[in-house]
């Protein structure tokens, strides 16, 4: 019997987009879907999660030890639930939270973990990209429990409303005594989140400085877009690390991706080539980004971007 435990992306604010796409993957598996909502002060989020279409049960683990989603505290809780609940599948979003926790859960269960699934062929067989998305592997899990992280861009989000699941409190959260949260620096922005934005404007080394990103922000404001970047732009300190799109950064697939001053290295393409429409602005007509762009403009970005902002 397929019974799926989905670990929700933690947030005290509400249901997060990656939870909905992970549930999209769960729906493809078929079977009963339970969602674990964990954190501190998450009763409201649990109630909202219970309204998501297709969810049979919400398990809520509300405890101070879970406030920061530390893997050392979260993993044993999940393992306990898998053992007592007899789940056949554990799914987590491919966010930094999910990638941190899911392998720890899998190892404690002595099973493999399947990273970044992009397709469900059957309850034990999945597709996933390897080599920066230059190859797609179909893999079959030989383990009794399938633990996987889900690439959000590959699955349709389920409806956030229409369901009425039971909410059940789970206890057993404890401090493993291995790690403590010290602090964070969270980028504050009025713009949409990169991974769920409809439009993204991304800048690369061609931007020359962090100050020049204002040009992209002005365009992004006009389009209601998120701002992203290449690794080179992050490494150079133009923008924070969480802007990075690519093989080892964020994977995005917006309706419109505008790459500005980005050459199009395979590691960057790995993060954005599933966008619906790709625009590239680059002064080098040989730049590889033009090979995947639907619309390429060979131009100096310092002239083209302000013009574009003026015309949209």
């Amino acid at each position: 019997m397929t019974t799926i435990l989905v670990i929700a992306e933690p947030s005290a604010e509400g249901v997060k987009a990656p939870t909905l796409t992970t549930l999209g993957a769960a729906a493809k598996l078929g079977g009963a879907v339970h969602v674990l909502v964990l954190g501190q002060g998450v009763a409201g989020v649990a109630d909202a999660t219970a309204k998501i279409a297709g969810v049979a049960k919400v398990l809520v683990a509300d405890a101070a030890e879970l406030a920061h989603g530390l893997a050392e505290n979260v993993a044993p809780l999940v393992v306990g639930l898998v053992k007592s609940g007899g789940y056949s599948h554990v799914l987590a979003p491919s966010t930094t939270f999910g990638k941190n926790v899911a392998p720890r859960v899998a190892a404690l269960l002595d099973v493999a973990q399947i990273s970044d699934i992009t397709g469900v062929e059957s309850p034990d067989t999945f597709t996933r990209p390897i080599y920066a998305g230059n190859a797609i592997a179909t893999v079959q899990s030989l383990d009794p429990v399938k633990v996987a992280t889900v690439r959000g861009t590959a699955f349709e989000a389920v409806q956030a409303t229409g369901g009425s699941a039971a909410v059940e409190a789970v206890s057993g959260a404890a401090d493993a005594g291995l790690s403590t949260f010290v602090g964070n620096e969270v980028s504050k922005s009025e713009r949409p989140e990169l991974t769920s934005a409809r439009v993204i404007v991304s800048g690369g080394r061609g931007m020359q400085s962090g100050d020049n990103f204002h040009l992209l922000e002005a365009l992004a404001d006009k389009l209601g877009a998120a701002v992203g970047a290449s690794r080179a732009a992050v490494d150079a300190g133009f923008v924070p690390n969480d802007y990075q799109v690519g093989q080892t950064g964020k994977i995005v697939a917006p309706e419109l991706y505008i790459a500005v001053g980005i050459s199009g290295a395979i590691q960057h393409l790995a993060g954005m080539k599933d966008s619906k429409v790709i625009v590239a602005i680059n002064k080098d007509e040989e730049a590889p980004i033009f090979q995947i762009a639907d619309y390429g403009l060979v131009a100096d970005l310092f002239k083209a971007v302000p013009e574009l902002t003026g015309q949209v």
């Binding site: 990209p129 190859a135 949209v312």
Partner: peptide, 26 residues
């Protein structure tokens, strides 16, 4: 523990076009 059943190339994007100006792009 994971058996690789097959490995294929990803779907290719259809080639795009170059536009001559910002007006044309918009």
């Amino acid at each position: 523990r994971l058996k690789t059943l097959k490995v294929v190339e990803p779907a290719k994007r259809a080639g795009g076009i170059k536009v001559g100006s910002v007006e044309e792009l918009v």
